[in-house]
């Protein structure tokens, strides 16, 4: 029982980080109908910014927000200078529909190459700002540490802010309207192009947070060829698909579900199966419930 609760706690923490990555992917999908594989690279680049700021200032509390700003700027930059011109020119005939997705894969490679060029063999260091030693409950150490609580707190805070922005503000209404019906939105006077860039920026900030938290929760350091970040991208994408790719709530539920399932497999089956399990879940969802766990058939939700 004790072991199982610990497994759940590990799964929920890891899952909450996948949720952030899933949110990053869902936001871009909703605003431009592009699966953004570059999100993994953007998270990586933002984490390097976070590590650099941490080295200079020594404060995680300055490093995290600045990394989020960097993520937003990088992401908006990519939308504005690469995806926007590309989408204006590409159509929906034959192989053209693959253009944007190939482009984001290419960008992922380019970002990693640039980081390798800048950093070479050096790594960015992002140690946990709080203790990651588990609390002691009746003589035994549980998988809940101050650092884990901090991670859950940050993720929760971001999700509440995003929900408020999307549901309660004019910007949120513009974001939702532009993703559901760009033409009607333009006729209503919404600057849809600008709103799309904002959507990408928010996505970049969410991805940056996922990257920083993944690093501090994991090895504590970030390298240009980081396997941790490849996992983060894949798990974030699987979580987004579990949640139905359209929905922010779905992305959160998808991330938590995936985190818990993978933690159980890691604990009771074996670490080598985790990656395969994630792909199996992806394929099962696509076969059995392509609309995601909360998606209604053909329906779209905020």
């Amino acid at each position: 029982m004790f072991e199982f609760i610990n497994t759940l706690l590990i799964g929920i923490t890891a899952g909450s980080i996948y949720s952030l990555m899933a949110i990053s992917i869902v936001l871009v999908w909703r605003s431009t109908r592009v699966i953004n594989f570059a999100a993994g690279g953007l998270a990586l680049a933002s984490s390097f910014v976070g590590a650099a700021v941490l080295e200079k200032t020594g404060s995680f509390w300055i490093a995290l927000p600045l990394a989020m700003v960097a993520g937003a700027v990088f992401s908006a930059f990519i939308e504005f200078f690469f995806l926007r011109p590309l989408l204006k020119r590409s159509g929906d005939k034959g192989a053209e529909i693959f253009l944007p997705i190939i482009a984001t894969l290419g960008l992922l490679g380019i970002i990693k190459t640039i980081l390798s060029y800048i950093y070479g063999e050096r790594i960015g260091s992002l140690p946990p700002p709080l203790s990651d030693k588990g609390f002691i409950v009746s003589g035994e150490s549980i998988a809940l540490s101050p650092m884990r609580i901090l991670i859950l707190g940050i993720v929760l805070l971001l999700m509440i802010s995003l929900t408020l922005i999307f549901q309660r503000t004019n910007l949120g209404l513009s974001l939702r309207a532009s993703s559901f019906a760009p033409e009607i939105s333009r006729l209503a006077g919404i600057r849809v192009d600008l709103i799309r860039t904002v959507g990408w920026a928010i996505s970049g900030a969410a991805g940056a947070t996922a990257g920083i938290l993944q690093t501090t929760n994991g090895s504590g350091s970030v390298a240009p060829e980081s396997f941790e970040f490849s996992l983060l991208l894949v798990f974030g994408f699987v979580a987004a698909v579990i949640g139905g790719i359209e929905s922010l709530v779905g992305a959160v539920l998808g991330g938590l579900t995936l985190g818990i399932i993978l933690a159980i497999i890691l604990m009771y089956v074996g670490g080598s199966l985790v990656f395969i399990a994630a792909f199996l879940i992806l394929i099962l969802i696509l076969l059995l419930r392509p609309q995601g766990i909360i998606g209604a058939k053909g329906g779209r939700r905020a």
Partner: peptide, 17 residues
């Protein structure tokens, strides 16, 4: 109209600008 938005949101959309 945008089916996913509420009636109120559809109306507000017109005056956002």
């Amino acid at each position: 109209v945008i089916p996913e938005l509420t009636v109120s949101e559809n109306l507000e959309l017109g005056s956002l600008w």
